[in-house]
Design a protein around this nucleic acid. Structure first.
Length: 588
RNA sequence: CGGGGCGUAGCUCAGCUUGGUAGAGCGCUCGGUUUGGGACCGAGAGGUCGCAGGUUCGAAUCCUGUCGCCCCGACCA
């Protein structure tokens, strides 16, 4: 049966909703696909559900092809499994927590690793049962600090989450690859451009992780890629470490007076004015060692100061710092922090002090503060840096000879032109929106929840897992974001809510009779038809609605009927052609 | 959580500076005309002006507080 507008649950809006800013949000609300319920939470109307179902069908198809089986968990779950793995705490404010009438704790699941693990533990005991891949398409809940951009970042969203279970690392590699391949097919079928980048596993834990990013300037993730094929989320980017240099024959460091030079810029200016380089080149910020003081707060509330030394032309990237120190929070040290460590002279911090028995920072330091270095600060490199006395800096301080560190850390910002760590050339940075993420979780969850099987030798082994997510509703929004014009949405055929939109115009009964025949023909040919059969609506309104709703093929039945023709309109290309009444199906 | 903007009819908004009977367009209902690009005429229905307190003879308008929403940032498997 065709869907008739005379009794469909659809109301389009003539004007843009005032609370919608981004294109996808604006058009999906205006065209009657979704309605806002609360910030980041949307009701799905019939049109929206149809598009969502189309996307889900493609995902199901490829999941089945990849050997995964569909299950379905509640969104409302007991909190205990999340306490066992630690995520009840680790997830922080991002998780919705609630209690029933008796005060028993529940969560609205932000993701389902724990309960999938427990389900498999309930049912499986033997390696013969493995490998296993199961998935669901379910709504997820995250208490986002600021939901935004309609469906693009909501507090409730639909996700396909799959989990693989293997008892060997090699098996996990195979399961992971199967999902990864399925993702490539899914995004290709959806017509979504994607880049696979190395990712940080974050709070999920685990070893290997890759993100599928849709490149777009409005994306929330920054990623890098090289012409040679390297691609990584900026948070997972690692620095190409230069070779160490010999320290013999290098002159001793020299301290010099540097009044009023608390910044790298002023230091470079002073150096060029007072201490010109022997080779005639100018000193630059990259010749200085900037020592950034960070406050690292652990989950239990412990606050630790850490000093990170990096080339002076770089800034600390707090997101990369969060990854480096996770799960702790990182922020720049404040005045109170500095007050506790009078040995740190702001603007003149350095690892070394003239005549000091022990270093100020580094191994066996007098301050005891953890000192970490950017990987570029390799043994043998000379630096201009603070001398740890007010208004004094030091020249020619040699890494590895004059100072050491407690370790190395990836905190410095990443730039266009930086070399890729795999030697594939300079990288460029770009923005992307995360549409999928695949993880090798390893044994973190199975270990915590006790998922073990007996192997071929009768020994208990802990299962190794993978977790694979696709943001269904986010994808729908991105497709809407990509496929529209000033008149409205223009769905790709693969996800359009209907195949054909038939408009009957005028009030001539012959026109409506002809339209009914065409609709019947289209339905008989297997097309889903949305039929605008509203009798008292003017043609202008009907055309506007057809354009707004964005079904890719529109058939206009009207004045041409007298001559035995109708108009077939390709919304995607804008082409409109006259065809005979009985030639509509063939013309599509 | 920091910064900015906004809460008036179902929707989009005006009115607030300078206090004095609550408005427009669209949408909706009824009658009539109209039907290939958001038609027209006539008659209607519809609002505790976010909420609370205060000032005042009188508050949508002024003051205080509070709640909510949107945007930017922080945050974001």
């Amino acid at each position: 049966m065709p869907t008739r507008l005379t009794n469909y649950f659809l109301k389009t809006l003539r004007e843009d909703p005032s609370d919608a800013e981004v294109t996808s949000h604006r058009l999906l609300v205006r065209a009657g696909y979704i309605r806002r319920q609360a910030p980041g939470i949307f009701a799905w109307l019939p049109l929206g559900l149809r598009v969502k179902a189309k996307i889900e069908a493609i995902i199901r198809d490829e999941m089945t092809a990849a050997g995964a089986h569909e299950v379905h968990f509640p969104a409302l779950l007991p909190k205990e499994p999340y306490e066992v793995t630690g995520r009840y705490v680790d997830y922080g404010d991002g998780m919705f927590r609630l209690a029933d009438r008796r005060g028993v704790g529940y969560v609205l699941a932000p993701t389902h690793e724990e309960v999938f693990t427990l389900l498999v533990k309930d049912l499986y005991n033997s390696y013969k049962d493995l490998p296993l891949s199961i998935y669901q398409i379910q709504d997820k809940y995250r208490d986002e600090a600021r939901p935004r951009a309609g469906l693009l970042r909501g507090r409730e969203f639909t996700m396909k989450d799959a989990y693989s279970f293997d008892y060997t690392d090699a098996g996990l590699d195979v399961s992971y690859q199967a999902q990864r391949d399925a993702y490539e097919r899914i995004f290709t079928r959806l017509g979504l451009e994607y880049v696979i980048v190395k990712a940080d596993a974050g709070a999920m834990g685990g070893s290997k992780s890759e993100e599928f990013l849709h490149p777009t300037p409005v994306g929330e993730d920054t990623f890098v890629r090289s012409a040679g094929g390297y691609a990584a989320n900026v948070e997972a980017f690692t620095t190409l470490v230069p070779a160490a240099l010999p320290t013999e024959a290098l002159p001793a460091p020299t301290v010099f007076d540097s009044p009023n030079t608390p910044t790298i810029q002023s230091l470079v200016a002073l150096a060029n004015a007072g201490q010109p380089r022997a080779d005639g080149r100018e000193w630059t910020a990259a010749d200085t060692l900037k020592n950034v003081v960070l406050a690292v707060t652990q989950l239990d509330g412990t606050r630790e100061l850490v000093v990170v030394g990096m080339p002076g032309d770089r800034d600390a990237d707090l997101k990369r710092a969060e990854v480096a120190f996770q799960p702790a929070e990182v922020e720049p040290a404040n005045d109170d922090d500095f007050a506790k460590f009078p040995g740190l002279i702001k603007g003149y911090i350095g690892p070394w002090v003239e005549g000091g028995e022990k270093p100020v920072l580094g191994e066996e330091s007098t301050t005891g503060i953890r000192y970490l270095l950017d990987p570029r600060v390799v043994t043998g490199t000379p630096w201009i840096t603070g001398a740890n006395e007010a208004e004094k800096h030091v020249f020619g301080l040699i890494a590895g000879r004059d100072f050491t560190a407690d370790g190395f850390v990836e905190v410095a910002d990443v730039r266009d032109g930086d070399p890729a760590p795999d030697g594939s050339g300079p990288i460029e940075t770009a923005r992307g929106m995360e549409i999928g993420h695949v993880f090798q979780l390893g044994r973190k969850y199975a270990e915590a929840l006790g998922l073990k099987v007996l192997d071929e030798n009768g020994k208990l082994v802990t299962v190794t897992m993978g977790s694979y997510g696709i943001g269904v509703t986010r994808i729908l929004a991105i497709i809407a974001e990509l496929n529209n014009d000033d008149k409205g949405l223009i769905w790709p055929k693969a996800v359009a809510p209907f195949d054909v939109y038939v408009v009957a115009t005028g009030k001539d009964p012959a026109v409506y009779a002809a339209a009914e025949n065409i609709v019947a023909d289209l339905e008989a040919s297997g097309r889903d038809v949305l039929f605008d059969d509203r009798p008292k609506v003017s043609p202008g309104v009907k055309f506007r609605d057809a354009e707004l709703i964005g079904v890719p093929r529109i058939v206009i039945v009207g004045r041409g009927v007298a001559d035995g023709t109708v108009e077939v309109w390709n919304r995607t290309t804008g082409d409109r052609v006259e065809v005979a009444l009985d030639g509509v199906v063939a013309a599509l």
